[in-house]
Design a protein around this nucleic acid. Structure first.
Lengths: 225, 225
DNA sequence: ACAATTCTTAACTCATAAGTAAAGAAATCG
DNA sequence: CGATTTCTTTACTTATGAGTTAAGAATTGT
């Protein structure tokens, strides 16, 4: 009874296809060089049809960004593990897997490249991505502090230290050099070292935590890789 | 006797002006949206004249990037101070002052935004900027290790930890949100905290070094700010 | 002061891309 | 099955920008 008419279903599917195509083409070519003909072709339809769904290139871009922002929010779940160290390790790996995905890097490049022209987009990206993850991490770290496992004055700085330690170098390199996405061994190296520094600086039981870190193994490569 | 004819002097000056204008306009608008008319106007001359100096937009961009790369290399000198902690602090501030300059951030955004289209430019930027600074820092840290002040297994990772700790968060935010260049108090906060974490993790005399850090004050704001 | 060089002005060609219109074909609906 | 809706095809307008030309003005050199 709630089944939509075929026509409406098709409209929803086509809109979906257009937004996906827009993401691909904008990410590859940047806003200006991506043409509406290219995006229509990528979506498997024609430009006049595309214009029936989105009245202008700007509106398509904005809609695509809004959609992607919502998708981004879904990516940052918190893996559960046994113990703070295992949790930090699992999350570091999860975060790395998301952030270093080629499509995510392409999107980041797009946003950074357009940040001057579209300040709201940059702001929205920062709010839905990094700031959101940071807020979650701050809460997590404060819980660990309350449980006596960590000590720090400023939870925000501690959370930012963690990202800086585990992913700053590979991500920056990958942003500058698209071919330079690190392999899993390299990511492991950064994560492990970053967590060591973090635990040495903030843990109330550094020896025990470093030993726990030594026993952890990286997660299997995800199918999306 | 070595004085160049006025004509040659003017050519050199004009070329300089064109490259400066190119940097400004490309940084503000990105490669595609920056027009040769805009750049000529910024340089205070006309498009046909501009084409007398640089045969195409691509070649102007490449020349501008090459020029900027050489400029970048000049920016990363090593301030001298008394003691390792003071040296790290001074350099952290120096690095922050360079990297967070609006024009440097604009250039970084430009490079990141064009990285897919111009992989060589991204590679050259990485090699002349971050990799270069990193190499210097690695050498410095290894000297401190040899002198018994630091302990680490991997100098490269230690050097990357330092950048990640002191500047990763503010720089990323500034890349996404052009208005969000941090004030000096915020930079101080990141640098001080970052160095604390670094010293706690790697110093052979953490208490002493943290005390030394406490006594340091930020450098005066530079005139270029 | 005159000649040579360089720049400016004004106009141009060509290509590209955003956005649009109309007619016919295809898909869906009742 | 005919009516309606939606999409495709084809062609179009307009604007923009890379790159170019020619004539006259300005600058430099001798």
């Amino acid at each position: 009874m709630t089944a939509l008419p075929k026509r409406q279903q098709n409209r929803i599917l086509r809109e979906r296809r257009i937004l996906d195509a827009a993401l691909v083409v904008f990410s590859q070519k940047g806003f200006v060089s991506a043409s509406m003909d290219d995006i229509a072709a990528e979506a498997g339809l024609t430009k006049p049809t595309l214009y029936q769904y989105f009245p202008s290139k700007d509106e398509l871009f904005t809609a695509m960004m809004t959609e992607e922002r919502d998708h981004m929010l879904e990516s940052f779940e918190y893996p559960s593990a046994s113990g703070m160290v295992a949790e930090l390790y699992a999350f570091s790996w999860h975060y790395a897997d998301v952030v270093l995905r080629p499509d995510m890097l392409n999107l980041a490049r797009l946003i950074i490249g357009e940040a001057q022209r579209l300040p709201d987009v940059g702001r929205a990206y920062q709010a839905s991505g990094p700031d959101r993850v940071l807020a979650g991490m701050i809460a997590y770290l404060e819980r660990q502090r309350a449980a006596g496992r960590l000590v720090f004055d400023d939870a925000e700085l501690a959370a930012e230290d963690l990202w800086g330690l585990i992913l700053s170098a590979p991500r920056n390199r990958a942003l500058h050099i698209p071919d330079a996405v690190p392999d899993r061994g390299t990511i492991e190296r950064y994560i492990r070292n970053g967590l060591r520094v973090f635990l040495r600086a903030y843990s109330t039981a550094p020896e025990k935590d470093l030993a726990a870190l030594s026993s952890l193994t990286p997660p299997p490569a995800t199918a999306t890789e």
